[in-house]
């Protein structure tokens, strides 16, 4: 059940995007998120979609993968459209049923919001799909390293993230085990009202919590045994910007320029 979630997972493969430097990917993802909000008319929106799909294809991941991870978003998108249709009352009516009319602005707004949400999710999923958690943590650590001058302990923060990532699968296994154990004792997680269901989770989360504390204490011992003090560490992994990062940077820059040009050439819809 919990295993099926693909958001935030890493899918190793050999591709242009996989081979890029994690820092470059992280920064370009942020840039893409900003550009998403720069699109003001249908032309630039279309360009945005096309570029996003192109980038996704260059990662050589299966299209099905991203579609699966977008599926849970469907209710959110539908809700957005409904809200827009009900509350946006500007522009010209395109459809009237009795006293209620749907305005064209509502449809345009819906389109923009939905496309933006989808692009945001695709772009950020792409980051985690193609970057190992370790690399991502490294990238965050390096990018935040200027904060060290403000006496913020970036290294320890990155260590915490690494450990969290390392223990997620372990804890998921543990939840599976506890769930089966409780089911074997006749626990029922699927029926009853909300309160009953929440109550039925206690016998899983309390042992989980206890064992997590036990694990933490053993892990702390193991880290101490390997001379961890949090200070004076060096890093085994190297990060190097390469030609792919330059190409990607150029592509995103050209794309951003294109979006701005389209915004200027054609009248904004928003």
């Amino acid at each position: 059940m919990i295993r099926d979630i693909s958001i935030g997972r890493y899918f190793p493969a050999k591709s242009f995007v996989h081979a890029m430097d994690a820092r470059a990917k992280l920064l370009l993802t942020l840039a893409m998120i900003v550009v998403t909000f720069l699109c003001k008319n249908l032309y630039s929106l279309a360009a945005l979609c096309a570029f996003t799909i192109l980038v996704y294809l260059s990662s050589r991941l299966k299209p099905l993968l991203i579609l699966k991870s977008l599926k849970p978003l469907l209710p959110l998108l539908i809700l957005t459209v409904i809200m827009q249709v009900i509350f946006t009352k500007t522009g010209t009516p395109v459809l009237t049923v009795g006293k209620f009319s749907v305005y064209d602005d509502a449809l345009i707004m819906s389109l923009f919001v939905c496309v933006r949400i989808l692009v945001l999710i695709v772009v950020s999923s792409l980051l985690t799909y193609t970057t190992s958690p370790t690399r991502l943590t490294d990238a965050i650590e390096r990018l935040l390293s200027p904060l060290k001058h403000l006496k913020i302990d970036v290294g320890t923060f990155a260590m915490m993230m690494t450990i969290a990532l390392r223990f997620i699968p372990t804890l998921i296994d543990e939840i599976d085990r506890l769930t089966s154990a409780q089911k074997a004792r006749g626990a029922d997680f699927e029926s009853g009202n909300l309160i009953q269901r929440v109550k039925s989770l206690f016998p899983i989360f309390i042992p989980l919590f206890v064992s997590a504390i036990q694990r933490a204490s053993e892990l702390a011992d193991a880290m101490i045994c390997r001379c961890y003090t949090g200070e004076g560490r060096t890093s085994y992994r190297v990060m190097k910007f390469g030609w792919r990062d330059a190409v990607a940077l150029l592509a995103v820059a050209v794309f951003t320029g294109g979006v701005i040009t389209l915004n200027v050439l054609f009248a904004p819809l928003l």
Partner: peptide
């Protein structure tokens, strides 16, 4: 399960030497 720190085998082996500042 409770003594490996990193998400990749070789990174975990490197954990000690990293701490030594090598």
């Amino acid at each position: 399960d409770n003594q490996l720190v990193a998400t990749i085998v070789e990174d975990d082996v490197a954990f000690g030497p990293e701490n030594l500042g090598l």
